[in-house]
């Protein structure tokens, strides 16, 4: 679905490359989690996948970016955004500012694409129910908490039903319950065939929901793989990417001789439970 081959990019008038030799493959109907230290180039990568680079930001982009079989750099930005939806980091800036109620705010994109009115109403109600924000529909988007704004921002993007959705830290303002709900919604969307790329720090949730993880460091993607393999990789610390507390516990247990080196490190609660139960029974 998404295929980046040897992609390098420099911002206009910048002397250094922001990204260098990036390769990324994301399968249709899967969730790809992308992790990396802040400043590693994640937002830039998000904009490349969504077509904003090079259409809106200019600069020097090399390599090929194909989404849904198409080269996004050839068409226009409007072509790109009808294939890839982008949820930006700060929900306050995601809100259009031009609408007086949440209901109209969610419909803003649909209006721009000329969706018929009855279909708009149906889709807004649907997505509001999905994210459980029906009670906010008649409020002003500016009278919401940060977490509520984030849900509205997500709603206003998934209502467009683009085949691909890119999300740049979509749960930064949400409480744990809200965060879990968003991830559940993403998993439900994946079941309908939508491809999701999520830039996120919450590794335990990525471990549960993502199909693959990709690590951004040193201006490139340095590691790709199944979440369990990536999270147990010893090099994560050197790339300033954390890991789950179960991996950390597993490493401590290894250091103290409680876990033999040949036993793979646990990355989730369930795995940790299993591994330590087995070790106890062996002893």
């Amino acid at each position: 679905m998404i295929s980046l081959t040897d992609v390098s990019y420099a911002y206009p008038d910048a002397e250094a490359l922001t990204l260098e030799h990036v390769d990324l493959e994301v399968e249709r109907g899967s969730i790809a989690g992308i992790v990396g230290a802040s400043g590693a180039g994640k937002t830039t990568l998000a904009k490349i996948i969504a077509g904003f680079i090079p259409h809106a930001d200019g600069g020097e982009l090399s390599g090929t970016v194909r989404v849904d079989g198409r080269d996004l750099s050839t068409g226009s930005l409007v072509d790109a955004v009808s294939v890839v939806g982008l949820v930006i980091q700060n929900p306050f800036n995601q809100i259009s500012g031009a609408k007086y109620t949440v209901r109209e705010e969610i419909a803003f994109g649909l209006e721009n694409f000329g969706t018929p009115r009855d279909e708009m109403q149906r889709r807004v109600d649907e997505v509001a129910a999905l994210l459980r924000i029906e009670h906010l529909l008649d409020r002003s988007p500016y009278a919401l908490s940060g977490g509520q704004q984030q849900l509205v921002a997500i709603a206003s993007m998934i209502v467009l039903r683009t085949p691909v959705i890119v999300m740049d830290e979509p749960t930064a303002q949400l409480d744990p319950a809200g965060t879990r709900m968003v991830f559940d919604v993403l998993s439900a969307l994946r079941e309908t065939g939508i491809t999701i790329v999520i830039f996120e720090h919450k590794l335990e949730l990525l471990q549960q929901h993502a199909d693959r993880l990709h690590v951004v460091a040193d201006r490139s993607i340095v590691l790709s793989g199944a979440p369990d393999d990536v999270l147990a990789d010893d090099r994560l610390a050197q790339w300033a990417v954390g890991t789950t507390r179960y991996v950390t516990a597993g490493r401590l247990a290894r250091e103290r001789g409680l876990l033999p080196p040949e036993v793979p490190l646990p990355v989730s609660f369930e795995q940790a439970e299993r591994v330590f139960d087995r070790e106890r029974s062996v002893r």
Partner: peptide, 12 residues
């Protein structure tokens, strides 16, 4: 910031 100003095609 210079980067912000230079983003504008008119400025360039």
């Amino acid at each position: 910031p210079g980067r912000f100003r230079q983003r504008f095609p008119f400025v360039r």
